[in-house]
């Protein structure tokens, strides 16, 4: 029996990924920060073991640490569920692309082959990518109306096309694998091939895709919050906190610099995660090839 040495240095990003949200989660246990007008704008202070405020107070007298912890979780949850929805939509799109038989319409020729669904889904997602995702998300957000679920829908819909295009490309690769050809030759139906052979590959693709675009989703959510799309009526997201306090930088930097740093750290962690999974995914693809 052999033990593989686990280097602490290699796992620092993972430890950080788990520890960072957990610490912020602990601060959430103290409850949502309450408004105390008498404490408004108070700067960070440490007067004793029990009498301290590490990040000071907001213009409404809310504890900045609590505000950031709640805002962090709000922003991260919207991004994570939004990514989940985008992946769900693209997974359904992939199923449609593989199974449905639709006419391949061209102004030059009319063909009727078995990959019509794939053709149309590919064209549709390519066309969808020409609409800037942030502008689309902003428009949809205002048209549907603000809220936590709206933000998730908006992120899911606006980022669907990139995932769909990526998954369709992967499906195109998988289709050419010899064992798929063999399965087809032995009479395997479309549903059988999808369920038996593609699904395991696609699930690992979805897992990778989740982390691939997670930094982008986080940036989109914060940008939307900054542009005035609130993801919750009671809790302000990190982008909203910055938008509300951006004019106070020279007088009360403690209300704007920590949330800005928190966003950068959060996105940086997701970038590190993305790179880590990208390496693993490349290795997995080499094995598959």
């Amino acid at each position: 029996m052999s033990f593989k040495a686990v280097k602490l240095k290699d796992n620092i990003p993972i430890i950080f990924v788990i520890a960072f949200p957990a610490v912020l989660g602990i601060f959430m246990l103290f409850g949502r920060p309450q408004i105390h007008p008498q404490l408004a704008y108070q700067k960070p202070y440490i007067h004793g073991i029990t009498d301290f405020s590490l990040f000071g107070y907001s213009p409404l007298g809310e504890d900045m640490l609590g505000l950031m912890a709640w805002g962090y979780w709000q922003t991260v949850l919207v991004a994570v569920f939004g990514r989940g929805l985008a992946l769900l939509l693209s997974f359904l799109g992939l199923f449609i692309a593989w199974t449905f038989v639709l006419p391949r319409l061209s102004i030059f020729k009319f063909q009727f082959k078995s990959h019509f669904g794939f053709f149309w889904m590919s064209r549709f997602s390519e066309a969808f990518m020409t609409i800037p995702s942030l502008l689309l998300a902003l428009s949809l957000g205002y048209l549907i109306g603000e809220g936590f679920y709206t933000m998730i829908i908006v992120i899911g819909v606006s980022e669907w096309a990139f995932n769909q295009k990526w998954l369709l490309g992967r499906l195109n690769e998988y289709k050419r694998f010899p064992f798929i050809e063999a399965s087809k030759a032995m009479g395997g139906g479309k549903l059988h091939i999808y369920g038996r052979h593609f699904l395991s590959f696609i699930l690992s693709d979805l897992f990778f895709l989740f982390f691939l675009y997670l930094p982008g989703s986080l940036l989109t959510v914060t940008a939307l919050e900054f542009l005035g799309l609130s993801s919750g009526s009671e809790i302000a997201g990190l982008g909203s906190i910055i938008a509300l306090n951006k004019d106070l930088i020279f007088f009360y930097p403690h209300v704007i610099l920590p949330p800005s740093a928190l966003i950068i750290i959060t996105v940086f962690i997701s970038l590190v995660l993305k790179n880590k999974f990208m390496t693993k995914f490349t290795d997995l693809n080499k094995v598959r090839a």
Partner: peptide, 23 residues
Amino acid sequence: NYAMMSAPIFIIALVLLWVFSLW
């Protein structure tokens, strides 16, 4: 550049505004 990629555009824009315009 990794730090730059992690920063949202609005934070970069605000920092540049504070430093080069207001300060």
